[in-house]
Simulated assay, not measured.
Amino acid sequence: MEKIKKMSNILIYDVAAESGGALSVLNEFYQKAKNDLNNKYFIVVSIVNFEETENIKILKYPWVKKTWFHRLFMDIFFIKRVIKKYRIDEILSLQNHCINGIKVKQSVYVHNAIPFCEHRFKLIHDPFLWFYQNIIGLITKKSLKKADGIIVQNEWMKNAIIRMQHINPNIVHVLPIKINLTHEIERIKTDKTRFFYPATAFAFKNHKVIIDAVKALSSEEKAKIEVVFTIFGNENKLSRLIKKEIEEYKLPIQLVGTLDFSNMKEYYKSSYLLFPSYVETVGLPLIEAQYFNAPIIAADLEYARCSVGNYKNALFFNYNDSEHLLKKMKQIE
């Protein structure tokens, strides 16, 4: 008689997720768990809401978000109680690193590129990102040595982890981001040449290189273009500095704030996508823009080359060279 396989108790750990890409990833694994009726799932979250099902129990701990101390207490001590209480057989951590000090099979979903990116942050200029890259990054990298399986979003992350950590390639698996879009070939014409950069106001998003390129244009050239940033200009110190510089030099750059996807779609169809960010895992707009036949000018970095793939309507520039960017912007007009 064939032996019946025992149902496993699988824990999905992601107290960090609350919005954006991280929440999308968690939701994707939640949907997979719903369809796997051969196992019991325990999903550990902080403040997000998911419906419990016959095979899914939601373990919600909102106190994790109070302070970093609470988060550390969860990661180092409390989660071990949860694992013991629910007799967990297998763990999937969506937080870039393993849970230490337990003897349970673990897989890790790695979606933070900072420890593996080509750009190296300097302590004097970017203390937080330097700390994340060098201290948290070291913890992440050491943790991956203990993982039974590693999941990444694309080939460049897989190659970076294997190269840097000498990980067995057989345990690193690529799970691409799902894009629910259809191709639209028709473009929208505009009076001026429009460049679009959908990104939040963080230093590594590199708005500065675009601003410097636009500043180098002549008055006549400035009158023929418009650049669109998806920031408000008041959300943090950097965004306020960006707004101030735009106003001071009277640059043809619009700050339109956060956009829903219907508006994003219109900009993709009517613009050239600029993407100078020097820290990304995927750079989702690089993939989305291709569905709308948008020309792309991107940082010449591994993540961008990987996301652009064989798309023919793309140019690359040295991410810290505004003159090189300007040359590419003029090249496609």
Rank of each mutant, 00 (worst) to 15 (best):
G21H: 04
V227K: 08
L26N: 04
I253R: 03
Y267H: 15
A16I: 15
F42E: 04
E18S: 11
I124F: 03
L255P: 09
Y278I: 15
E2M: 13
D75W: 13
M264A: 02
N39I: 01
D36Y: 01
Y86Q: 04
K205Y: 02
Y272R: 10
M164G: 03
Y303D: 04
N9L: 07
H125P: 06
L26Q: 05
V48A: 08
N39H: 15
V256E: 02
K85A: 06
L129W: 11
D212Y: 04
A298M: 08
A16H: 15
P198C: 14
T190L: 14
N154F: 02
R305M: 12
N38I: 02
V174G: 03
L37C: 11
F131W: 10
V82C: 08
E266K: 14
N100C: 12
Y249K: 15
P62M: 13
I188M: 06
E51G: 00
F292Q: 08
Y30W: 05
N9H: 10
F50N: 05
T67Q: 10
R71F: 11
F42M: 03
A213Y: 01
V209H: 06
I179Y: 11
I114P: 06
Y197G: 03
N168P: 01
E118C: 09
R163K: 14
M1E: 11
E266G: 05
Y249S: 13
E220G: 09
D75F: 12
T53M: 00
Y272D: 02
V25A: 06
K328W: 08
F275Y: 13
W156Q: 04
K158A: 00
S307A: 14
G21M: 05
Y303K: 07
K40G: 11
T190R: 13
